Simulated scan of single mutants.
Amino acid sequence: MSSSDDKFTAADDAAVDRGRTTPGASRSLTAARVRDNIARVVWVVCMALALVLAVAAFTYALEANQDNGLVKLVRDLADTFDLSVFDLDNPVKAFTGKNAVVKTALFNYGLASVVYLVIGRVLERIIRP
């Protein structure tokens, strides 16, 4: 950006503050608001997916009733959104021995949750003006 671009932006901002908008300022403010809203939606979706995976991992840790409809729903959603990399049938890290299923679920779904949070934050920063 050149210094003339900075002056133009400052002048547009001053005009908006006084209630007078120029066409360029109005369009750039609208675009900024749209990008801000899209960034928020992307972040919320990634947080929701990370939360589903974390709750699914806790259903294994707490040995929740597998016949419960809510437990089935959460585990099915986690199986759908595990990026096919952190799948419990073919995990990144498979544990053996005592509580192997719990450890595998906590590790893989926990890692998938962190990946969703990182991806969400990076995308939010890229999209936000």
Rank of each mutant, 00 (worst) to 15 (best):
L123F: 13
A56G: 07
S28H: 07
K72T: 03
Q66M: 09
G120A: 06
S3Q: 09
V122A: 14
V16C: 11
T104D: 04
L111R: 01
D6T: 14
T96I: 10
L53I: 07
V52H: 01
D82K: 08
M1P: 11
A64G: 01
V55D: 00
E63F: 12
A100C: 08
R125Q: 14
V44M: 10
G110H: 06
Y116T: 01
V71Y: 05
S3A: 11
G110F: 05
V118H: 06
I119D: 00
V41H: 06
C46R: 00
L111Q: 06
L29H: 11
L117D: 02
L53W: 05
V55M: 08
F86C: 01
S113N: 02
T22M: 12
R40F: 14
K93Y: 11
T104H: 04
R35K: 13
N68E: 03
P91C: 08
K7V: 09
F81C: 04
D12P: 02
F81L: 04
I126W: 06
L77R: 00
R27I: 15
Q66R: 09
N99D: 15
G97L: 06
R35N: 09
K93F: 14
Y116C: 01
V115S: 04
R20M: 14
L73R: 00
L106E: 07
V42A: 12
N65P: 02
K93L: 15
V85Y: 09
P129D: 00
A64K: 00
A10S: 14
D13W: 06
N108Q: 05
L106W: 05
V71T: 09
K7S: 10
E124R: 12
R33G: 15
T30P: 03
L106F: 08
V118A: 12
Q66N: 08
L106C: 05
R35M: 11
F95K: 07
L83G: 02
R128P: 02
A56H: 02
F8N: 09
C46S: 15
R35W: 05
A48Y: 03
T104P: 01
P91H: 09
T80M: 09
L88G: 03
V102T: 15
G97D: 04
A61S: 11
T96N: 14
T9L: 15
D76Y: 10
K103I: 02
Y116K: 00
W43S: 12
T22L: 11
D5W: 04
A15I: 02
L88E: 03
D12A: 14
R27T: 12
F95C: 05
L51S: 09
S3H: 12
Q66G: 03
A78L: 00
R33L: 15
S26V: 05
T80R: 08
D6K: 11
A11H: 08
G97S: 05
S26Y: 11
S3F: 10
D5Q: 10
R20I: 15
D17N: 12
V71L: 08
S84K: 14
R20D: 10
C46N: 12
D82V: 06
G69H: 03
R128M: 10
I119W: 00
W43R: 13
D5N: 07
V101E: 11
G69R: 05
P129W: 01
L123R: 09
T96A: 13
V71K: 03
A94F: 09
M47Q: 13
V44Y: 12
A57E: 04
T59R: 01
R75M: 02
T80A: 10
